[in-house]
Each structure stands twice: as C-alpha cells, then as structure tokens.
Design a protein around this nucleic acid. Structure first.
Lengths: 248, 248
DNA sequence: GCAAATTTGTCCGTATGTATC
DNA sequence: AGATACATACGGACAAATTTG
C-alpha cells in the first residue's frame, strides 16, 4: 500500500466510507464554525489544510471547489482563501440551468418563478404598506424615475432599476430570506428569458406605469390598491411567458 | 513553455481570463444543453472530457466537483458520470450552513425560513382548498394517522410524515418550485433546529391536532378556517424559536 | 520599478478502489 | 475469477497572480 495508507481516525472496515474530499469539506466547515469566522475572514492556505486534515492537495482543492460553489468559501488567485458571503448564488446557477435545460415545456419553470415573486409581494401586501417609511418610498420613486430615463440605455439601467425596486419593496419586511430569494428569482428570469424568446423589453411604458401605480398605492397606504397594482404588474409578465410558450 | 502552452480557442490577450476549470464547467453545461440530455443520462468519462475540452484531469475533476455541488451532474464511483437531478440540494446545504454559522442572533434565519413556508401555504389558501381532491385529502389524513402512531418511533416516522404532509399540501398548486422550496426549508429547519436548542418534539399532541384541523378545513372547503388552522399550526413553531432565542 | 515570497492554478505520472461483464 | 473501464487519490513540478520589502 502506498497512497491511502491509513485514514487515521476511522478505519470503518465495513461501513460505506465517504470520499476523502467530503471529510475535508466537513473539516473546513467545522473549522469555520469552531472559530466563529465571518464572511471575508481568512482561511488557512491549501498546503496548511493538507497537513491539518491529512489529505493531498488535490483532495483539498476539490473540497474547496465544492465549498466555493456553495459560496461558503471564496478564493482569490495568488492571495488566499476566505469565508464566502453565503449568498444564494448556487440557487441562481441551479435554477438557471434548470430553466435552460427543459425540452418542450420549459416555460413552467419561469412561470413558477414569477408566481413565487408575486406571492411574496402580494402575500405581504398588508405588512408592506404599513412598514415602508417615507424615505423608502422616495427611493422607490427614484427607481421609477430611473426606469423612465433609461429608455436609451438599452436595458442596463432599466433592468437594474427594476431589480432594485423589487428588492427595496420587500426589504422592510425584515425577512432577509424573502429579499434574497426574490432577487435570486429575478436574476434567473433575466438570464433565462432571452434564451426562450420571452421578450422582456417590449412594453416598457406600461411596465413603468405599473411601477408608478405601486408607489402611489404605497404612499396612500392603500393595501387593496397595492395588491391590485401588483396583479396588473405581474399579469403582463405571465402573459408574455404564456405567449412564448404558445409559439412552440 | 510547458503546461498552459495554448488555450487554443481564445487567447484573450488583455481581457481577464477566467480559470480553465470554469471553461470546463461551461463546456459540460453546453454539452448537456446541446444534446438535450435529461437527468440520469450518461456523460463522457473524465478522460474523454479531458481531450474534448483540452484540459487536464485535475481541471476536469474540479469542474465536475462544482457541477455535482449544484446537482447538475452526478457521479457514481467506478461507474461513470451522469446528468444530475437538478434538485435544490445546494440551497439546503448553503442555508443550513448559514443557519449554523450565525453568531448571536442566528435564529433570524430560522424565523425567516418558517415565515416563508407559512406564506406559501397561507398565500395559496384559496387555491389549495379548491384544488385538493378527495384522494389527496385521504392521503393527508393518512399522514396525520401516521404521526399519531409514531409516538414511540422517536421522531423518525413523525418527522417524515410531517414532511410528506406539507409537501403534499402544496403539490396540487402545480408549482413545483414552491413544493421544492417548501421541502428544502423544512429540511434545513430539521437539521439546524437541534443545534440551537429549539425543541421540535415537545408538543407532539398539539401539533397533530393542528394538522388534523387543517385536513378538516380542506375537506369542508373552508378557506377561512384553513388559513386560521395554518396560523395556529405555525404560531407554536414561531414561539419555540423566539423562546430559544430568549434563552441566550 | 524590481525581485522575492506566498498562494492559487494547472499539468503529468502513477497507484488504488470500485463496479460491470 | 479475471478483465476492463472508471473514478479516487497521491506527489511533484511549473505557471500565474498578488503582496511586500
């Protein structure tokens, strides 16, 4: 025997042994938890992890790749490895690929996605119209104005403002998960839609008008009007998806 | 020069070049999309991918690790690599770690999680009481009966039935994403809660009673009672989290 | 600005464990 | 049981990026 001579701690003669890289994954996770590290904190170098965990550099590197895919660690070339931001980037990548893969009725993924976003905002309508303060409403108005001015920008400014608008809209709930999920789904939609002939920038004027209506409803604290405005905002999106689906 | 002699396709003299393994990641993704593969379909072996994409085993293997973390590919030792199931397993791992990492008020993650699950079910109450057919309601009742009988089982049968109950509850929406997110959040909760001294198996009797009430409300197609039953079901969970938070 | 040191990125060769036929 | 194909793991070497003296 030359390589995997001993697994030191646990021989595990019969039980199905997990790959060594998985032990490294767990080891790095434990290290972060044990030392109560925060996103951005430095981690030991690859060589240090090798001798600390008793694995070769290949195994350590593969483990690090897994952890980076989950945004649990972050690597900077020639600099070092650090604790990641724990974002939902893995969800975005996973859902994006799922959206691109589906063969015939792939649009179901997109429809589901938009429906959840609408559910977040409509389901929290009562709390939102009460929780948004004047300063936040002004910022919402600012994003609407930006969308108006971004007609020539060909998308960049427009979609960014749209994303910021909906992110800020659910922010005062105090539920970070909802905000991050909403943003993640928005990202997936923007990436996948162009590949499916779902035209997003067709009716910019009406999209802006609907956003304006949402702002007005929030400003007057009218929950019913707020919910109605959301319905009218998402209906065209739903319609465009159904339209593209019918084209196949 | 010996190793990175040529990047064949794109020299990219000035632009910030991405790591080779990322090109392999994109290459495998493109391969799956190009050939319209489905979950379970076989992928080329590592050596085949090496010459096809012009990369070494190390780079290919690291790329595969990234793709397995996202459940885009699945590897069976000594057998081969296949298209993965595209589940939300990465979300579960990511959120679980986030839940375990938080320093002082980590319970916010758990509270957010439960709130989203409740939002899914309460926000869709109207549609759910209409969409669930008799056969599905009978199966819901079956899970409640299982929870009753699983008192001695010490959790295993109990939690499984609980998971199945809520998964089936949102299934008739026809929105797979909601079902998978709901299940993923449930998994995270079950994994993280024990580490935070959130006692889940304390009031089994009342938990079962609340599930029974949900079933009864669905059977009589009473949306208001259904929503009320959900509130009473989730209130204790929320309370237990707040209770554990107060203990610190 | 330069050179050295540190750290990650990539490659190769080889040996081992695992599953299929 | 043997043969084959495949993934797993090791160790060493060099390339590229970054920081620092």
């Amino acid at each position: 025997m030359k390589h995997g001579a001993e697994r030191s701690a646990t021989p595990e003669p019969k039980a199905a042994r997990q790959p060594l890289r998985q032990e490294v994954v767990d080891g790095v996770k434990s290290y972060i938890l044990r030392n109560k590290l925060r996103p951005g904190d430095p981690l030991p170098s690859e060589t240090a992890l090798c001798e600390a965990l008793g694995a070769s550099r290949s195994s350590v590197r593969e483990a690090i790749r897994i952890l980076t895919a989950l945004d649990i660690v972050e690597v900077r070339h020639g600099h070092g490895t650090y604790v990641g931001r724990l974002s939902l980037s893995a969800l975005v990548e996973s859902l994006t690929f799922r959206g691109l893969l589906s063969p015939d009725d792939d649009f179901q993924v997109m429809a589901d996605l938009v429906e959840v976003r609408e559910l977040f905002e409509r389901g929290m309508a009562d709390r939102l119209v009460g929780a948004l303060d004047e300063e936040q409403i002004d910022r919402l108005q600012g994003f609407v104005d930006t969308m108006c001015a971004a007609g020539a920008d060909k998308g960049h400014g427009f979609v960014d403002a749209d994303r910021s608008f909906h992110t800020l809209l659910v922010a005062p709930l105090g539920n970070d998960l909802i905000g991050q999920l909403s943003a993640a789904f928005w990202d997936v939609y923007v990436i996948v839609a162009p590949h499916l002939d779902v035209f997003t920038h067709e009716h910019e004027a009406s999209t802006i008008a609907n956003h304006q209506r949402i702002v007005d409803a929030v400003r007057t604290r009218d929950a019913a009007e707020f919910a109605a405005a959301l319905t009218d905002h998402y209906a065209p999106v739903r319609h465009r998806i159904a339209e593209a689906r019918a084209r196949r």
